[in-house]
Amino acid sequence: MTDVCDGRMLRVAVIGAGQAGLSAAYYLAARGLEPWREFVVVDANEGPGGAWRHRWDSLTLDRAHAIHPLPGAPLETRDPTEPANRVVPRYFGDYERRFALPVLRPVSVTSLTHDESGFTVHTGRGPLAAASIISATGTWDSPYLPHYPGIERFAGRQLHTHDYRSAEEFRGQRVLIVGGGTSAVQAVQELYAHGAEPVWSTRRAPQWTRRAFDAEWGLSVEKSVAARTRQGLAPLSVSAATGLPLNELYAPDITAGLLVSRGPIVRFTERGVVLDGPGPDGAGKPDQGEADALVGATAPLPGRAVDDGWDTPIDTVLWATGFRAHIPHLRGLGTRERSGGVVMADDGVTVVKLPGLFLAGYGASASTLGATRAGRKAAMAALRVTQERAAAAA
């Protein structure tokens, strides 16, 4: 990085080259900032694609959440059966080249420091100085792993969807899938199709909904998530607020008894899990929310009744429990609240406690649609800050 580490001050440094980071870079260039001399994007990945390059091969376009186009480059109609981890990196790479975006990779950011002159981005390849920072690091590198009693005793395999690659390796195993989002229900279906025996566990009734996942719905979800970040609370993932679409992709498997939550985890044993839901015979089910009327007979789970639930043996735990905002590089800046969140302004991108620092893809914008809009907002806000500072110094 010698070309940008020669002591001069960049106007803006963007951290992350996913949807939000590339959107921000596009608008910075479109508003006249000179790539490499006035702004750069640093990315920890080996190549384009952001978090999408790490998704499992079986996550095809027709099974992924909507992938919204980047500004200035429509996403052409693609084969819906092609893996998203190929389509999106190809699209992002073409985008970077088309608009000559100044992306440095692989560059891992370890921390940020700040003084009256601006920010220093500390990386594995040296420091980088900038008057303003757009942090667009998303959530992929911070998978959330909840704790349950007895988990330290469990002798089987555990993995998060962050590390999930193929259902084939679980053939013949009984796999506990933990989580209430679409990644959990899709894992149940995929594991079953590949000869595994999935057992689905949720903390509460699955949040099935018949509501159309349209623009109006998306805005209402973003508003509910943004309300937390304005208070400095740790953001819930957008996916946690969306619910599960009760549509033709899932309804048949609900009726067949496959996509039926067996209730919350009580505790783990050395070789299994105790669930509060199957009842005294192992065939029961707790409330399934909107899907309750669709559920047919459920097969009994192997195992035995114990004082606090139903003990069923399992081989593997797949934690489909989502992700948290990946912002460890903000430690030391004094922006984090005790709750773990960052107080955000009404625009959703401005960090209230530290002028010049902007978060895109954080909280309400942790979705492809929200990330694109947040990238634009952050770019415009960063430009205003650097212009104001330049005017004050003149």
Rank of each mutant, 00 (worst) to 15 (best):
P89K: 13
E46V: 12
H68S: 06
D347Y: 06
G370D: 06
V260I: 15
D115A: 08
G257C: 06
L246F: 02
F99V: 10
A155Y: 09
A234K: 13
M1A: 06
T368K: 07
P280M: 14
A251L: 02
E168A: 14
E34R: 15
R324H: 12
A30G: 11
R78H: 11
R53I: 05
L369M: 10
A130C: 15
A30N: 14
R98W: 08
T202M: 10
L61M: 15
D311L: 14
L104C: 12
G232D: 11
G16A: 03
Y362E: 05
P80F: 10
K285G: 02
A215Y: 10
T139M: 05
D163E: 09
Y164T: 03
G296W: 04
C5V: 01
L61F: 11
S117N: 15
A24L: 03
K353W: 05
R105Q: 12
V306K: 05
T298I: 08
T316C: 04
R331I: 09
Y27K: 02
T242R: 10
R78A: 03
R331K: 14
A215F: 13
I67N: 01
I314V: 14
A193C: 00
G156M: 13
Q158P: 01
V342A: 00
V351I: 02
P235I: 01
A394E: 12
G50R: 02
L294E: 05
P127R: 09
G21C: 07
I254F: 03
R90I: 04
G363P: 11
V103S: 04
R165E: 09
A212R: 06
S239H: 09
M1K: 03
L28I: 07
G375K: 03
F358K: 01
R90S: 10
D281K: 09
P264V: 11
A64P: 02
A167F: 00
A84F: 02
E388Q: 15
A393P: 11
L219W: 14
R86D: 08
A283Y: 07
R97S: 11
P89H: 10
T316N: 02
E222T: 12
P74D: 00
I134V: 13
A256Q: 05
L333S: 06
T386C: 13
D346P: 15
T298A: 08
A193K: 10
A227W: 04
G348Q: 00
A299V: 13
V317Q: 04
G370S: 03
S237W: 04
R37V: 13
F170G: 00
G195V: 03
K285W: 07
A256K: 06
V175R: 06
V273R: 09
P245F: 01
F358V: 01
G18M: 12
W36I: 14
V351Y: 02
S220T: 09
H114S: 07
R11F: 05
T312C: 13
P127A: 12
A227K: 11
P280R: 14
K353I: 05
D307Y: 08
A241N: 08
D94Q: 12
P206K: 15
G180T: 13
H54F: 12
L59S: 08
G124C: 05
A299H: 10
M1I: 04
V273Y: 07
D163K: 06
L75T: 10
G118H: 01
G124H: 06
T209M: 03
P83Y: 15
A379V: 14
S58Q: 12
D315I: 04
R125V: 08
G340W: 14
R37H: 13
R157I: 14
P280W: 15
F213K: 03
R338T: 15
M344H: 09
D163Y: 07
H122S: 03
I177W: 00
T269Y: 09
